[in-house]
Amino acid sequence: MSDSGLSLALAQGGIEFKQFVRTRESLVFTLLFPVMLMLIFGSIFSDVIITPPGVSPAVTLSQYFVTGMIASGIMSTGFQNLAITIPIERDRGVLKRYRSTPMPKWIYFAGKILNVAVLALLSIVLLLAVAVAFYDITLPDTGQKWFTFAWVSVLGLTACTLCGIAFSGVAKSGRSGPAVVTPIALILQFTSGVFFEYSDLPPWMQQFAALFPLKWMCQGLRSVFLPADFAAQEVGGSYELGKVALVLGAWCVGGLVLCLLGFRWTTRRDG
């Protein structure tokens, strides 16, 4: 019996997840690498206080950093993961093989999205656990903050996932994927307030980063995990949650359009 769309999508997600967790490289790169970075930089930054003298509660750079790492973890599971693995699958003819079956196209994407959602959840839980255990981050104490945490994560993940799928069309071959994608992720992390405080960056760099989702994901998560008073240290003098929603929403729409325009099932070599 052929399965219904929903169960087919779930099965596709299951296959994707099995494939992912059995591939050690992707497991390490996507889930463990951000944790390692958090531990390394978190330890280096733990004594650096970034609030002005006398302001309480004091915020350390490592606390600032871990919120950025959670945003990076979300970007990693959505953007880097898909932008790298889809071209590999295309090279190997996996996509073409799916196209040779009556499987509706959307099932493939649904499988990817389900897999990404589960991985992002794992990544967030893992990073948050480390952040709470070692860097004095407390879990949100109000429903309002949990709600902000949820929508920033979901909207950010959606934007990154769609951009990852769209970007898979850019890499010429599976082998060139990481070389193209990794620098982009790194540049965004350096300019969006992950490794350095965003408000300390040169204005041109701030303006550059403000065009992309990561900066806004970081800012949204700071509003959840850093004290309300810390908003005064932000460039705009507040966490600008309305703007966060607007920019991430715009990237979701833009990413979707790029997906529809640029996705390729076959390699260029195939014609």
Partner: peptide, 29 residues
Amino acid sequence: GIVLQGTGEFDELKVGEVVRHFARFYPNA
């Protein structure tokens, strides 16, 4: 049915898993 040029790769999946998964796409598998 199509057997493409070159080998399809499913890496870490098992033979049975791949065949069972593709069977889902067809009503008369």
